[in-house]
Design a protein around this nucleic acid. Structure first.
Length: 489
RNA sequence: GGUCACGUAGCCGAGUGGUUAGGCACUGGUCUGCAAAACCAGCUACAGCGGUUCGAAUCCGCUCGUGACCUCCA
């Protein structure tokens, strides 16, 4: 590969050169959504972060298999209904089949992810479709002596595991600390130790989602599916595992323990974690009830929202901060992103209108290299956009006649923008539904030519009136030296 | 309580030992009949207190503040 990309590996807590296990193939697994609620702003961040990684690695010439799961079984709710499946609970509330709920929210997730212009993963496995494999992994862990049975449930023996391996290596926990600091929770009495976690859970009678097994009718443990589906589709050793920082502990720690207990070695080479989105400084979360769904964001229908924000604005907003930093939501910040994005996209359109000269007043090769350098440094998209905005000034300056560009450089500049903005960053022009309407276009042109006549006759009252009324109708006019330009907002 | 992050100009956000990141907002100028857009110029900050260093926003220590994880969550 021409470019060396550095990735921050949570396991080592530093940036490492990315070297795939079987170059040019890259295996990438990302924790996907639990499909029991509307997709929200928090889902957008990992989806976009790993979408950029997927796109960029592909762009660099790697053959990437991107696996992202759909969790449709097995997670617990945090209220009094101990041991009840999240999805089953919701099903009873809404009087629907559990799988109907899962399907509904899976569809909804897909719709919103498409709006955000994220590419579909190569494989999107469902937890419910891999119950047999999960049971196999449980058997393997039992056989290796790292799990025990209690009343039809199977638990992972963390203490025993920790004697040979290091439980806590990813999250930086020490088992002794966990031992002394674990909170008192109900439903833990079956476990030998409070930090042990379930591999298989016996289903209570009212539990709808259940599968037969050697041990009981029940459902798989919370962390099992990712261990199973990642190695099933990417091999026992694969390159990248990504997810939100909130999954670091216990989820990913347990995944490592499970894979190691089963196979004797861990599966993942690079662990990546995106940071959270906060609302007014506080984490957005289902249980906190302060989350904004993507639907609300796109329509502006939420008490915290001053207006609607387009999917591309959201995408750009997320890319303007680095994925490992927390990102605080605010209307002001989103409005800034909206305007910035417009400036960027307008400049890209301007490229096509530029006149060329003998030479260029900017080193395009160097400009392009700086864009690559930004992404190679742990996907630093804010820096990428800083460079792209420097380029915007250059483009506009050429249009104003203050800078020059050669035709070869113009071609390269155009390609660079298309590559980074559309192909890699995955942004796209906001489509205006009327843009392809020829009749509307001629009507606007008639109006604007009338306005031009009025202007030439110094009848500014009429010309301003036409401009103001069109502006109210959402048509923005920009006067040029020799005419006009317009666009539909 | 334990563990780990973070604290950067009006707002959002990069950087992380020596050269004004960038976006948005604001102010002045150019252009324009006036606007809009664009360009030029201005606004130049690193929580506080110590320490290391020729030099620290950047390294170290302490203090204060905020957040995350420890329990389902992206």
């Amino acid at each position: 590969m021409e470019h060396k990309i550095h990735i921050y590996n949570t396991l080592s807590r530093k940036k490492e050169v990315f070297e795939p296990i079987n170059s040019p193939n890259v295996g990438m697994y990302v924790c996907g959504p639990t499909v029991y609620g509307d997709p929200h702003l928090g889902h957008a961040r990992p989806a976009i972060t790993y979408d950029i990684l997927f796109r960029y690695l592909t762009h660099l010439g790697y053959k990437v298999r991107y696996v992202r799961n759909i969790t449709d079984v097995g997670h617990l709710v945090n209220d009094a209904d101990q041991g009840e499946d999240k999805i089953a609970k919701k099903a009873r509330i809404e009087q629907l089949e559990p799988m109907e709920i899962a399907q509904f929210y899976t569809n909804s997730y897909h719709d919103k992810m498409r709006d955000l212009n994220t590419l579909r993963p190569s494989i999107e496995p469902h937890a419910s479709g891999h119950i047999i494999e999960q049971q196999e992994l449980v058997r393997k862990i039992i056989k290796n002596g790292y799990a025990y049975e209690k009343n039809g449930s199977i638990y992972f023996d963390v203490e025993k595991y920790n004697k040979k391996y290091n439980y806590g290596k990813l999250s930086g926990r020490v088992l002794d600390d966990l031992q002394s600091n674990n909170r008192e929770l109900e439903g833990q009495e079956e476990k030998n130790n409070p930090f042990d976690f379930a591999l298989w859970k016996k289903a209570e009678p009212e539990h709808i989602m259940r599968w037969p097994s050697d041990w009981s009718d029940g459902f798989p443990g919370w962390h099992l599916e990712c261990s199973v589906m990642s190695t099933k589709y990417l091999g026992e050793k694969f390159d990248i595992h990504g997810g939100g920082m909130d999954l670091l502990f216990p989820h990913h720690e347990c995944e490592i323990a499970q894979s190691t207990a089963a196979n004797g070695e861990e599966s993942v080479k690079y662990w990546m974690h995106n940071n959270m989105i906060t609302i007014e400084g506080q984490k957005m979360g289902k249980s906190l009830g302060n989350f904004i769904t993507l639907e609300e964001l796109f329509t502006g229908n939420h008490k915290l929202l001053a207006q609607a924000y387009s999917p591309m604005t959201i995408r750009f907003f997320i890319l303007q901060s680095h994925y490992r930093k927390p990102l605080d939501f605010s209307n002001e910040a989103l409005q800034a992103s909206e305007k910035g994005l417009e400036r960027l996209l307008t400049a890209i359109k301007t490229i096509d209108t530029l006149k060329t000269s003998e030479k260029s007043s900017l080193d395009i090769k160097n400009f392009k290299q700086k864009c690559y350098d930004a992404l190679n440094d742990d996907l630093n998209t804010p820096i990428l956009f800083a460079h792209l905005f420097d380029g915007v000034r250059y483009i506009n300056s050429i249009a104003d006649g203050n800078d020059i560009i050669s035709s070869a450089d113009l071609q390269e500049l155009k390609e660079t923008y298309h590559k980074f903005v559309f192909e890699i960053a995955g942004l796209k022009n906001i489509e205006t539904n009327a843009a392809s309407n020829d009749k509307l276009e001629s009507v606007i042109n008639i109006l604007l030519n009338t306005r031009l006549d009025a202007k030439n006759n110094k009848d500014f009252a009429t010309s301003d009136k036409i401009r103001d009324l069109l502006s109210e109708a959402g048509i923005i006019i920009k006067d040029k030296k020799d005419g006009f330009e317009w666009e539909i907002k």
